[in-house]
Amino acid sequence: MKLTPEQRIELHGFNNLTKSLSFNMYDICYTKTKEERQAYLDYIDEQYNADRLTKILKNVADIIGAHVLNIAKQDYVPQGASVTILVSEGPVVEVPTESFAESPGPLPDNVVLQLDKSHITVHTYPEYHPDEGISTFRADIDVSTCGEISPLKALNYLIHSFDTDIMTIDYRVRGFTRDKNGHKLFIDHDISSIQNYIPDEAKGLYDMIDVNVYQENIFHTKCRLRAFDLNNYLFGYTKEKLAQEEIEEITERLKAEMDEIFYGKNINSGSIN
């Protein structure tokens, strides 16, 4: 729903609703040997180091109209990285009416929106299965804003910033603000599903599940890549180098791993040597 300026709710003071977006992505790879596993982890460390993650978060700040106050970043040994950005209200010209609409947000451009007392963080978690068959990379990004704009407007850009097999997205509106008559408002925009903020081209690539608690303003969406091409999960070679039995076994193992992550429970305890 788009609100015209005439439809805007006149508030008593500042809009102090807190809107929090958690975006979790998973990349999965089959690494047969220790050498393959280390090569994959080295690739992840290079691809998603603290400097690149900082650039991604700065673009998120631009999209939601935030002014960067402070940046703390760290690359860890043996792998992983973290970045935390504190932000405050940026230069405010006006808040576009489309900020209220349930629709995918922009990619980075000149966007000016209202924001105050907020933060953006990312932490990465490379890990591997002890049988050396599966390596997984996870990145957790949290965008928390106070004010009129929802951090969901950054979701389109985040999806385009990572090669993602599985996404878990949570959105929650906390606290309350008041209109000019003192009436409490626990949410200031219509939302039926996080899916409405995901672009159509991305929605066509993923199977999705929603779990929403509307009365608590809590929204949850999980996305799993539909197409499966084994070559996308092999590191340094293609399936043409594998016997048919290996192809079937590795495919089964990878799909089981994706099922367990997507559904959040252990399904298959088998392993590949």
Rank of each mutant, 00 (worst) to 15 (best):
A139M: 03
F14D: 12
Y30I: 12
Q244Y: 06
M1F: 13
K2P: 01
I134F: 02
L41T: 09
Q38T: 15
H12W: 13
D131L: 02
T84M: 10
E6A: 13
P106Y: 06
Q7G: 08
I134R: 01
P78W: 08
A81K: 04
R172V: 04
S20F: 06
S88A: 07
S161T: 11
K265L: 11
D142S: 08
V213G: 03
I134E: 02
S135N: 06
N232H: 13
K117C: 06
V87I: 07
F235N: 11
V68E: 07
S22W: 03
D229C: 12
T164S: 14
Y206L: 12
I85C: 01
T145H: 07
I247E: 00
T168P: 02
T31W: 11
R37C: 15
I63M: 12
D229H: 13
K203T: 09
K184M: 03
E248V: 07
E245Y: 00
Y206G: 07
I134G: 01
N110L: 09
G264N: 02
D142G: 03
H67C: 05
D163T: 06
S269A: 14
Y237V: 11
Y197Q: 00
T18P: 04
D75W: 03
N232Y: 11
Q195M: 13
P108H: 05
D165S: 05
A72T: 05
S192K: 09
E35V: 15
T121K: 07
T31C: 15
Y40G: 14
K117I: 08
A256T: 04
I44P: 00
K32R: 15
T33I: 15
K32H: 11
P91S: 09
E245A: 00
I63N: 09
I166P: 04
G182D: 01
Y125F: 09
S20G: 03
S144P: 01
C146A: 12
A72C: 08
I71M: 09
L242M: 14
N15T: 13
I194G: 04
L230M: 10
Q7K: 14
T164L: 12
T177W: 00
K32P: 00
I64M: 06
V95L: 10
D27Y: 05
L107K: 11
T164M: 15
I209Q: 08
T31D: 14
L185A: 00
L230G: 10
Y197N: 00
